[in-house]
Simulated assay, not measured.
Amino acid sequence: MIYAQILAGGKGTRMGNTPMLKQFLPLGKEPILIQTIEKFVLEERFKAIIVVCPADWVTHTEDLIHKYVTDSRVVVITGGAERNDTLMNGIAYIEKTFGLNDDDAVVTHDAVRPFITKRIIDDNINAVMHHAAVDTVVPAIDTIVRGEKDQASEIPIREYMYQGQTPQSFNIKCLKKAFNQLTNAQKAVLSDSCKICLLAGEEVHMVRGEVSNIKITTPYDLKIAQAIVEKRVII
């Protein structure tokens, strides 16, 4: 079975003073979260589409989905304190509700990347059937500088550098095993889900993302997203 998990647990601190969490802000005629969910509803191969959000926002999320989405595969559950806790809450829900088979997979995506394309979703599904972990990336355009406290320590060759996006997709049993092998110290600093598998020695396959698959994190990002939506309406 293949499952989708929409990660909507972020607090949105970089969005500034807004009346609600960034994933619930309007983008054109619909909230950002709804536009993201609608892309996944189009994929018939998903057994369930799990939206994971903060506990205080579960009712609001369910109300939005009831208003905009008619697909019964979409369910809402409570997230965790950190991103990977939220991810594992979704995995626990899958295991409890459906059980787990060796080849079950999950396609995880940021709720605030509403411009995800069918091609990217297809590529993730096809790749995770053959690889334990899959990351969506685009080649780095700018030079990457590694440093700490205003001191550059390394400038890697840009040809080998990529910018990570989502979806990130996993064989569920491999992800669970890798996560359970992490120390508490590793979990505390882990900001990327694919790194769970890398730390466990699993290979991470890469598929091509799109520059347009932006993450709406700041007020500037929201302005860009609004411009994209308005341009599509005009066209």
Rank of each mutant, 00 (worst) to 15 (best):
V107D: 02
F98N: 10
Q226E: 15
E148A: 14
L7P: 00
T217R: 03
G10H: 14
G12H: 01
E159C: 09
Q23F: 08
N89F: 06
I94N: 00
A92W: 08
L42R: 06
L21M: 12
V52E: 07
N171G: 02
M1P: 01
V233A: 13
S191C: 06
R146H: 15
I50P: 00
C53W: 08
V41P: 02
K39G: 02
D122P: 00
P139F: 09
I141P: 03
I235A: 08
E210V: 02
N124D: 08
A132F: 01
A200Q: 07
T136Q: 00
H131F: 06
V138M: 07
R45V: 06
N89I: 05
K29P: 02
G80P: 01
K47I: 04
I65T: 05
I228Q: 08
F179Y: 12
D71C: 02
C197Q: 08
D142Y: 14
G9V: 09
Q35K: 15
I172V: 03
A111C: 05
T18E: 13
P139C: 11
K195A: 06
T218H: 10
I121P: 01
E159K: 14
I37E: 09
V112D: 13
K96S: 05
C53M: 09
D150T: 10
P167H: 01
R73C: 11
I125H: 03
K176V: 09
F24P: 01
L27I: 12
T143P: 11
G209K: 09
I120N: 01
G16E: 06
V76C: 13
T108N: 09
P114Q: 07
G28Y: 10
L33K: 10
K195E: 14
